[in-house]
């Protein structure tokens, strides 16, 4: 449970519109959060490993991962996160517009923590983001960093 601590969220999203919407939604949440955004898969991994320009970055408490990404796709990023011992405990929420069954199945087989399709409706979108935050930071017990 979050005890008023600031949570770090890594949003892997190349669509600037969605970035704004997600930020907006998160702003409305009661949980104090710090959202960091990367726009492709390569950068996401750099960030997670704390390499290059992300050397000073803190490891996030939650990853919101889109599947359609330039360079390295979301599923590849997921695969690597869940294979690497130091990263695999980070919860990964797939947040994508894809409703393809194969994407859903693949994601869970690669140990995604959950799969959420971006709601088309703005209000629902805000609601979903709020719920994600509420669930992961208010209900779920996470391992220490």
């Amino acid at each position: 449970m979050n005890n008023g601590k600031l949570v770090d969220i890594l949003l892997v999203e190349d669509n600037a519109g969605d970035v704004v919407l997600t930020r907006k939604a998160l702003e409305k949440s009661k949980v104090l959060n710090n959202v960091n955004v990367v726009e492709d898969g390569e950068e996401a991994l750099e960030y997670l490993y704390g390499r290059g320009k992300y050397a000073s970055a803190t490891r996030p408490d939650l990853v919101l991962l889109d599947l359609n990404l330039p360079n390295k796709g979301g599923l590849d990023v997921l695969l690597e996160i869940k294979e690497v011992d130091e990263l695999k405990q980070i919860p990964v929420v797939i947040l994508t517009s894809s409703e393809a069954e194969r994407d859903i199945v693949k994601s869970y087989k690669l140990h995604a923590n959950c799969y959420i399709q971006k709601p088309v409706d703005f209000k629902q979108f805000v609601d979903v983001v709020k719920r994600i935050e509420g669930f992961w930071f208010s209900i779920v017990m996470l391992p220490p960093k």
Partner: peptide
């Protein structure tokens, strides 16, 4: 079409809000 529509829809809603 859903993707851009989601953007349109979301932002007009945001605009309204």
């Amino acid at each position: 079409l859903q993707e851009p529509l989601r953007m349109v829809n979301s932002y007009v809603k945001l605009l309204e809000e």
